[in-house]
Amino acid sequence: MADQQPVLEIRDLSVEYRTARGVVRAVDGISFSVPKGAILGLVGESGCGKTTVARSITGVLHQSARIAGGELLLHGRDLVSGPPKAWLDARWREISFVPQSAMNSLDPVYRIGSQIEEVLVHRGGKTRAEARARASALFEMVGLNPGRLDEYPHQFSGGMRQRVAIALALALNPSLVIADEPVTALDVIVQRQILDVIRDLQQRLSLSMILVTHDISVVAYLCDQVVVMYAGRVVESGSTREVLEQPRHPYTMGLTNAFPDLESAAHELVPIDGSPPDLSQPLVGCRFQPRCPFSLPVCSSDDPRTEVAETGARFACHRHAESDLLRRHSRDIATWQRPQ
């Protein structure tokens, strides 16, 4: 797998938004790659830039956004510097996208079935009759009753609309699916069914996927690799097992510890106190420093370098050498209750 060319490689990507408050650098020089047939989980705190990354790959950034640097290599070809036409083609034929706002990505004035058929006919080259049959099959696949194909979006519940969006993304057998929080609005049973459908497609069609999520258990269930972002940067990445079981960055440690499971949920949940930095201001040092319980003086003055372990795992923390020790401390609730 390692010597195969990755489906997608992101190199040093930066994205900026123009706002009334100035330029916000929402993504600041991130790199990672998606191997063929792998599912990569993209996790991180709310507002850290996950959606921005997902949208820049699919080329559907907001008008006020600008790719400020870096490369997006799809099968080795750079989309950013290439002609816009090539990007558009790639987007149509190879990449499909389930937006985070999938729940309202449907057009309110058309029947749901006809919206799916539209895509199948115009982009999938199917006949009307084929499209109808395929739409029913897709509905079944995501656990919806095909008898309701002729309803309008407002007649569906939030989770049902979310499932329609997933069905749409899988409709044309894309080679790369980018799904932004696809299962957040779904109950655990439907969620599990859909994750199983995705896993099945991955195995049968060697589908590659970037799964943006905040849910560590979904990552654990489905993903081969995981990339952890914090405030526009990648702080840690590697195989799911390595990152979840031996996190080397304090933010990842906090993330894996704050998870409430059913048994222990009655105890106090420990948030990581404080909020992420304002990305419209220039930043020095480690971005996690103000909230990090382990920070040293060097953390507020120098950017931590990204280190690479033999296993291919990457992490950016000044104290990475002591990660075993920090991990032990991080399991203690008191560590997180009062960061310096």
Binding site: E140, G143, L144, N145, G147, R148, D187, V188, I189, V190, Q191, R192, Q193, D196, R199, D215, I216, S217, V218, A220, Y221, T240, R241, L244, E245, T256, F259, D261, L262
Partner: peptide, 27 residues
Amino acid sequence: RALVNAVPVPRVDQSHEALPIIGNVSD
């Protein structure tokens, strides 16, 4: 019961067994 059993856990070695309930939501 099915709901409680389907809760995913944040561990890599969770079971991938099929769920005890079958089929889709009827409406």
